[in-house]
Design a protein around this nucleic acid. Structure first.
Length: 486
RNA sequence: GGCCCCGUCGUCUAGAGGCCUAGGACGUCGCCCUCUCAAGGCGGUAACGCCGGUUCGAAUCCGGUCGGGGCUACCA
């Protein structure tokens, strides 16, 4: 290795030793499986001082939509993979010229040939719809003018061995590889070739992708070689599966990263969880700082068996991350659900100071940020929500007396949690009830629900006037229903 | 059907021949704490698919078998 000369230093910086890429097709929102692949690529690059390239494979015009491209970019950024973290995004559609050039190279070298066989004709000849292409046109010398597809001529004997960082060596017999299509009748290049040309152009050294591509690897490796390039090192990570152990799919499962973000999953929890699907920091560690993952991740330590995407465990991770947030950050993270169109109250009714007082009590009680709304809505809605189930459960027999007594007791107590609790304890004592029983009607009258934040802290924050009014409202409603339906 | 991959508690995993009467986490069950609900603490439940072989010794190595999955388009 020559190290003399300043130009070499600069050159090495332009061409880092290791280059990886994430190459999604914009046929939908980024899904969790894709996100995991992106994360593996990103962390691998970080770990080894390499570069990450983002390439949008937008060559199927019929299924692509520009907004999906932006959605993918936004989702990646949410995970931490911002534009500063990668080269690109490059659009595959802009490299049609290079793809066409590769077609010519292959054709001229005799590695490819035109074929005008209809699928039915092939099946008719082989008598087997599972067999694949039979090589009928191999030596017919057809030209592109015939409007046929261009096929790659796979070797008849021998085998191709894929060197895979997570699976070891995987061997494929050439006899089992059909002459696959590399260009359509209209001249456009298919995935197998375009993907290879773009990777070679970007000088990709490691192709890290999901296992569903494993069977493409031998074909692509042959293409790399035919084009005169050294094939990359491969790494096929396992797929993510659903409850039925089937590959996660857009139509069967909820997989869009955006959907999880909108529900209130934290990006940090999501990426920590995704990394643990197939990889472990070792020992008994699971929830770990991202820095540690970047420092310790090893592709060779990634499991090769499929992993179930377990939302329950993701939720547990999210709860942990929410609780670990400094209060100010927790308050900040809740904002999207508190102000704006999704909030059930007018923005003018929201009071940041009141929320700040409520927040510490809510932080240990929610698993998704979106759950903050029913926790605190009593403080911002003019009237508490009326949850029928809660009402029916709490507003039973001694409820009217309890409300009565509470109104009297709260009329002149010192308005702070300890005094409020003491007053309520007096009430329950007098009625021969446990505090847990006696607080229920009060809680429902004031917050609308049987479960929620600690009651006396909530009352203290709500204020005497509003509390008393709600107690009276509930009392009146109870009286009325007693009179109308005996 | 063909090619290929995979196989430790229900789930994600630790485990790289003796440290394993298999560890952790999620889930689940019970107890404690407690104004509801959480959080927290304590404890329980539950796995090396099966059969052979190698070895003094196998979850770990080999073979087979069974089971699951991926791919099998002029989609990517």
């Amino acid at each position: 290795m020559g190290t003399q000369g300043d130009e070499n230093v600069g050159r090495e910086q332009l061409e880092p030793p290791l280059r990886v890429r994430f190459a999604p097709s914009p046929t939908g929102m980024l899904h969790v499986g894709g996100a995991r692949s992106a994360l593996f690529n990103w962390v691998f690059a970080k770990r080894h001082g390499g570069a990450l390239v983002l390439r949008i494979e937008d060559t199927d015009a019929s299924r692509n939509r520009p907004e999906w491209t932006q959605g993918i970019i936004d989702s990646l950024a949410w995970l931490g993979i911002t534009s500063a973290e990668y080269e690109g995004p490059y659009l595959q559609s802009e490299y049609a010229g290079q793809h066409a050039q590769a077609q010519r190279t292959l054709l001229e070298a005799g590695d490819a040939y035109y074929c005008d066989c209809a699928r039915e004709a092939v099946v008719a000849r082989t008598g087997d719809s599972h067999r694949g292409y039979d090589g009928f046109c191999r030596d017919r010398g057809l030209s592109s003018a015939a409007g046929g597809a261009l096929r790659f001529r796979t070797p008849d004997v021998g085998r191709t061995v894929i060197n895979d960082l997570v699976r070891g060596e995987v061997s494929f017999e050439h006899a089992a590889l059909e002459d696959f299509v590399i260009a359509r009748g209209d001249g456009s290049t298919t995935f197998l070739l375009a993907n290879v040309v773009d990777d070679a152009t970007a000088r990709i050294t490691h192709v890290i992708r999901a296992e569903e591509h494993l069977s493409n690897a031998p074909k692509q490796q042959l293409l790399w070689q035919a084009l005169g390039h050294t094939p990359p090192t491969w790494a096929h990570v396992s797929i993510l599966v659903d409850h039925a152990r089937k590959k996660l799919s857009k139509r069967r499962n909820k997989v869009a990263l955006e959907a999880y973000r909108d529900e209130g999953f934290l990006a940090e929890a999501m990426r920590n969880y995704l990394m643990l699907l197939g990889w472990s920091p070792g020992g008994d560690r699971e929830i770990v700082p991202w820095k540690l993952i970047e420092a310790e991740f090893e592709l060779s330590a990634v499991t090769s068996s499929p992993a179930f995407f377990d939302v329950d465990k993701l939720r547990a991770f999210n709860g942990e991350y929410i609780r670990a947030l400094p209060l100010a950050e927790f308050i900040d993270a809740c904002q999207p659900w508190l102000v704006g169109k999704s909030a059930p109250w007018q923005t003018t009714e929201f009071d940041a100071e009141v929320f700040a007082a409520l927040a510490p009590h809510a932080q240990t009680r929610i698993v998704l940020l979106s759950e903050i709304v029913p926790m605190v809505d009593f403080a911002f809605l003019p009237h508490p929500v009326r949850d029928e189930q809660s009402w029916n459960k709490a507003m039973k027999e001694p409820a009217e007396q309890i409300l009565d007594a509470a109104i009297a007791a709260f009329a002149d107590v010192e308005w702070e949690p300890v005094a409020l609790k003491a007053a309520m304890e007096q009430v329950s004592l007098r009625l021969g009830l446990k505090l847990g029983k006696a607080q229920a009607p009060v809680r429902v009258a004031v917050t609308g629900r049987t479960v929620g934040l600690p009651l006396f802290e909530s009352l203290a924050i709500l204020g005497r006037e509003r509390t008393l009014r709600r107690l009276a409202d509930a009392h009146r409603a109870l009286q009325q229903s007693r009179l109308t339906t005996p």
